[in-house]
């Protein structure tokens, strides 16, 4: 902590302490006085959509927020790849300094034991299927698209560590970019059915809580995911509607995004 020595450091620490104590004392007032507000309304309507109310919140009540949130990680991936060297542009008329070279990482996999090498591929396959399980069961249990993407790309990273350049999971440039585009584009376009039939973008026409969508749409998007919910008040036939589909789209997008980040960091970026 060389940076905090001297008079400046002492002043900085005092200022931070004052800010911190002020912030903390205001939080003391807030403790126990939180107003539930809109969350309680969401919770009271939970049994009409999907049992996992967080999934409902993420993809139905605030579905459009989540679209932007999904776009955040897409942007994060594209920008980090741009920093590494993908898609650097220069003015044709006035070229500036050349961009820095992006070199691939060097792997030293000789030290790994044989058992790890033998079990690497099965572990990657099992992680893949675990990720797929998480994304398909998200409307009923915890987890969702983002988690699926993170698990899948963790498998990719694991395989890269075990096998180095000779990675058994060969996410190519085109596959990663394509799956990311398909994910975010699919999420965006899943708003269209609701928009065209009810006028509301991303209306969950499968669940149709408010009864404003045509019944045929409810049948198409709702029936494949209909669930029976046994509660104290009786059995509810709830339908998460398009939530499972959006989940898959989100998972694709996250696989594309984090996969692109890993790809760019591990292999650098060379143009063909």
């Amino acid at each position: 902590m060389n940076e905090l020595r001297g008079k400046r450091g002492i002043l900085a620490v005092i200022a931070l302490l004052i800010i911190g104590i002020g912030f903390l004392s205001s939080l003391f007032e807030l403790a126990g006085n939180v107003r539930p507000g809109v969350s309680q309304i969401y919770n009271s309507l939970a049994h009409l959509v999907a049992p996992n109310n967080i999934a409902t919140w993420v993809y139905d009540w605030r579905g459009y927020d989540t679209l932007l949130e999904t776009a955040v990680i897409y942007v994060g991936a594209v920008v980090s790849a741009m920093v590494i060297g993908r898609g650097v542009v220069q003015m044709k008329s006035c070229p500036q300094e050349p961009p820095a070279q992006s070199k691939p990482l060097e792997f030293h996999i000789e030290t790994l034991t044989v058992i790890l090498k033998y079990l690497g591929l099965p572990a990657a396959i099992l992680l893949f299927s675990y990720g797929i399980m998480v994304v398909t069961a998200s409307s009923t249990s915890g987890g969702g698209g983002f988690q699926c993407g993170v698990i899948m790309t963790a498998a990719y990273l694991l395989a890269a560590i075990f096998y180095g350049k000779n990675n058994p999971i060969r996410f190519g440039k085109r596959f990663i970019i394509g799956i990311g585009a398909a994910g975010l584009g699919g999420y965006t376009l899943l708003g269209l059915p609701g928009f065209l039939t009810t006028g509301f973008w991303q209306y969950n026409i499968g669940a149709d809580v408010w009864g404003i969508a045509p019944s045929i749409m409810r049948f198409i998007f709702g029936e494949p995911f209909r669930l029976s919910l046994v509660l104290k008040e009786g059995v509810f036939f709830s339908s998460p509607g398009i939530i499972p589909l959006i989940n898959v789209a989100e998972a694709f997008n996250v696989i594309g995004a984090i996969g692109l980040i890993y790809f760019a960091f591990i292999y650098g970026w060379q143009e063909e």
């Binding site: 797929i132 398909t136 058994p168 060969r170 494949p224 995911f225 669930l227 499972p244």
Partner: peptide, 24 residues
């Protein structure tokens, strides 16, 4: 009933998609 089958079908299709990305 159908709400229980569809996730498995989706999982199967996704499995085929990602299975094509394996090299070894």
């Amino acid at each position: 009933m159908i709400g229980e089958i569809s996730p498995s079908i989706i999982a199967f299709i996704l499995g085929i998609l990602f299975g094509t990305q394996l090299a070894h």
